[in-house]
Design a protein around this nucleic acid. Structure first.
Length: 795
DNA sequence: GGTTAGGATTCG
């Protein structure tokens, strides 16, 4: 019997099919002239009306799908099947869409339509002559009904209207390619909203407005060119154009628009139907869209961004910092080097949230993006490491910023990246999932940037240079030849090595390191331009460098520390070695301030010789105390102990100087260990640090000088000998306005503002060259040494 | 089942 019905009740299907040969999967099919003595399974995806061949023989086409439970992502998953002759009559009446059938003794032939319909390369032919048997599996349980119903809904109810056939007032299903979209944003009503414009090969365009209370149910569109399938959008007229609005029951599938990547749907709901027909539709739209690339935006990387351009950047977040109420800075990279001179957003490193070593390592490849207004909330919520698409980023070329005006006139304009407020042109920040195609591509770019030799990292950062283990060492004997006249005219002079003959920077650049050179050049630029940023905290133990915390941060940290202590539950009390005073501070944030006066052996307790332990104070109060008391140690109360605060807060303010500890190298001990010092008359900061287990940080200058003598240009660092160079201590400049003024005057002398570079003064100085890094990553760096500013006293 | 929005550059 050519058509048989199998029932669950008759035992397992495999048993009933014994003698039919082995089961064969669609992708294992081979062309054979004889009927294939194996059985094949499938669900009837489509059933077409029978028709007659010219011979009078009846033919009926059905489409089988290998599986009904998984969304089909392979075009091999559905196969055209033709039933010939007498078998057609039986099959027409019994087979229904959604039925599962088993076929034996069928023939496989090449499918002439495979390239068009995307189905299996073969088609199946069933006939009495071939000895085909068609088994229909009639499951009796609810599962069968569900399969049939589901399949029917998919196949019968979902028709898709071409965009040029859209009519006012109807609810329709449509497919299209995303031409424009705005990321989801909260509407003024109850829902999230998204606007999407789609196009299709008919040339028509449809503006769609999609609402949903759950942002996750909106289309997951990552870029223009994505393919979308909308179910149930209502067409209506607005501004004499038709537009689509999400209607009740709206659902959406989104697909990457690239050719050749898996058509994996990004769904708006947990359950969705996706069939071979859908796959076909997606592939057709992809092909069409990719053949008309002019309609879509091309990808722009940092390497090819043009001035004044608005572009979409796919990147990874390295760090972020809140700049002010309306702006958040995102430090991002995409693995390519931006060729423009970049404007760094001046943000204290302590305000930067992100892995410090990553920030340093990737520094030369990162750009600072300023995000404003409505985007700051998104920006604040992002975690470093997140992959992002920043849409409609403005590459703004700034010619005359205040910085360049006061610095080097005629200096190269700098590029800034702004994400302006608003959502026009689809402006926004979009976190991308790690499994999407764009992120895969981005990761490849990031990896290749990291693995390629560090030549792409053209500019090693200060930390790299200063932390390099191969410190400078020089080894060259040079003949004596003093050019007195040069020295006299120079704004900086040598403190030694006057016998070395000067070299041009061109020569210096061609020599291997390490070496010592005497050079004469102009200071054409220096960094940081904000001079207070040139003072850093340096750990002589681990050689790490960090920014000096700024006042706003310190204030916040202090008050946070105070609040944390207030919750400890223990009441302040006197101890053998200190007396405690507590009072309430009645400002906006009602606080309890605790001051513990340390008793010393000698009772000459003038305030300037006293040590106090303070808790719950604001930065302002700390400043006020520091004007009166010699030693101030900010503390925090723990249930069992009095302890130091987190080391982002100074552990000691002595005679107005703020002393910080290294977080990495310190092992803070309870404050009670200070009792061991109460015998001493004078508490030295080093002694205090030692008993408290603190590795003190030193204040140092770190500056980068760009030197040019016409024959060449190089960057040289000034740091460990900077105090000698300026005749000013870095720690002192922190607390003396007079010295800050002097430093500014010195720099204005060496690199005068509002002056053309031709008129800059000459500087005479010693440079050491040295290598940083290893192997292919090795890079030559330069450092200023044994040099000082001429006529320091007069400046 | 009813609103929202309805693409259209830039203060920084």
């Amino acid at each position: 019997m050519p058509l048989q019905q199998l029932r669950d009740a008759d035992g397992p299907m495999e048993t009933q099919l014994s003698g039919c040969g082995e089961w064969i999967e669609y992708d294992k099919l081979q062309l054979e002239s004889a009927p294939i003595n194996k059985y094949i399974k499938g669900t009837i995806l489509m059933k077409y009306p029978p028709y007659e061949l010219g011979t009078g023989e009846k033919v009926m086409k059905i489409v089988l799908e290998e599986s009904t439970t998984q969304p089909s992502t392979s075009n091999q998953a559905s196969i055209n099947t033709f039933i010939f002759g007498k078998l057609v009559e039986d099959c027409e009446s019994i087979l229904k869409q959604g039925d599962t059938v088993v076929l034996t003794n069928f023939q496989a032939s090449k499918s002439p339509s495979a390239s068009k319909d995307g189905r299996h390369a073969f088609q199946l032919e069933l006939s009495d002559e071939a000895g085909t048997t068609v088994f229909v599996c009639c499951k009796t349980g609810p599962e069968s009904a569900a399969i049939i119903r589901k399949t029917k809904v998919v196949m019968q109810d979902y028709t898709y209207v071409p965009l040029n056939m859209i009519k006012d007032g109807v609810t329709v299903n449509v497919y299209g390619v995303v031409k424009f979209f705005k990321q989801p944003y909260r509407s003024k009503g109850t829902d999230y909203c998204m606007t999407v414009t789609i196009v299709d090969p008919t040339g028509a365009k449809l503006h769609c407005v999609i609402f949903n209370g759950n942002a996750d149910h909106l289309p997951k569109i990552y870029r223009t060119g994505d393919v979308v399938r909308f179910h149930r959008v209502k067409i209506q007229e607005f501004n004499s154009e038709l537009q689509a609005i999400s209607a009740p029951g709206f659902s959406v599938l989104t697909f990457d628009g690239a050719l050749g990547v898996p058509a994996t749907p990004r769904a708006s709901s947990k359950s969705y139907h996706f069939t071979a027909t859908d796959l076909q539709m997606v592939e057709d739209l992809r092909r069409w869209a990719n053949a008309n690339t002019s309609t879509f935006k091309t990808t722009v990387t940092l390497a090819d961004v043009k001035a004044a351009e608005y572009f979409d950047l796919t990147c990874q977040l390295v760090a972020k910092a809140v700049v002010d109420r309306s702006a958040v800075m995102l430090k991002v990279w995409d693995g390519t080097k931006c060729p423009h001179t970049l404007k760094d957003v001046p943000v204290d490193r302590s305000a930067l949230e992100g892995d410090a070593s990553e920030i340093t390592r990737l520094g030369p490849l990162t750009v600072d993006v300023l995000t404003y207004d409505n985007h700051t909330a998104t920006a604040k919520s992002l975690k470093p490491g997140t992959y992002l698409r920043i849409c409609n980023l403005h590459a703004k070329l700034v010619v005359g910023s205040s910085e360049t005006r006061s610095g080097c006139p005629g200096a190269a304009p700098k590029m800034e990246f702004h994400l302006h407020g608003g959502t026009t042109y689809g402006r926004g920040i979009m976190p991308l999932p790690t499994d999407c195609e764009d992120v895969r591509q981005l990761k490849r770019s990031l990896e290749s940037a990291l693995s390629s030799d560090q030549d792409s990292m053209e500019d090693l950062t200060l930390l790299d240079v200063l932390n390099s283990s191969s410190g400078p060492s020089a080894s060259e004997e040079i003949s004596a030849d003093c050019v007195e006249r040069c020295q006299q005219e120079s704004k900086t002079v040598l403190t030694a090595h006057q016998h070395i003959s000067p070299k041009s920077l061109g020569e210096v650049l061609h020599q291997t390191a390490p070496r010592k050179h005497r050079i004469r050049a102009k200071l054409v630029n220096y960094e940081p331009r904000a001079l207070h940023q040139s003072v850093k905290l340096y750990c002589p133990h681990c050689r790490s460098l960090q920014e000096v915390p700024d006042d706003d941060d310190l204030d916040t940290w202090l008050l946070d520390a105070g609040r944390a202590g207030a919750g400890s539950g223990s009441e302040p009390h006197d101890a053998g070695w200190y007396e405690t005073t507590v009072w309430e501070q009645e400002d906006q944030r009602r606080r309890q301030i605790t001051v513990r006066f340390v008793k010393t052996k000698r009772l000459r307790r003038t305030p300037e010789r006293s040590t106090i332990l303070v808790e719950g104070v604001s930065l302002n109060e700390l400043y006020q105390f520091s004007e009166t008391f010699g030693n101030i140690i900010p503390t925090a109360t723990r249930p069992d102990d009095l302890v130091l605060n987190d080391l982002s807060i100074p552990f000691l303010i002595q005679d107005g100087s703020w002393h910080y500890g290294c977080r990495r190298c310190s092992d803070p001990r309870p404050v009670s260990v200070l009792q061991s010092l109460t015998q001493d008359d004078r508490w030295e900061s080093s002694a205090i640090a030692k008993v408290l287990g603190i590795q003190q940080l030193s204040y140092i200058f770190v500056m980068k000088f760009t030197l040019d003598d016409g024959s060449g240009s190089l960057d040289a660092f000034l740091w460990d000998e900077a105090e000698k160079f300026f005749g000013i201590s870095a720690a002192d400049v922190m607390i003396s306005e007079v010295l800050q003024g002097k430093l500014t005057r010195i720099m204005n002398t060496l690199c005068p503002p509002k002056t053309s570079p031709e008129d800059y003064p000459w500087l005479e100085c010693c440079l050491k060259s040295y290598y940083v890094g290893e192997g292919l990553d090795q890079k030559t760096c330069y450092q200023v040494f044994d040099s000082t500013v001429a006529g320091l006293d007069a400046i």
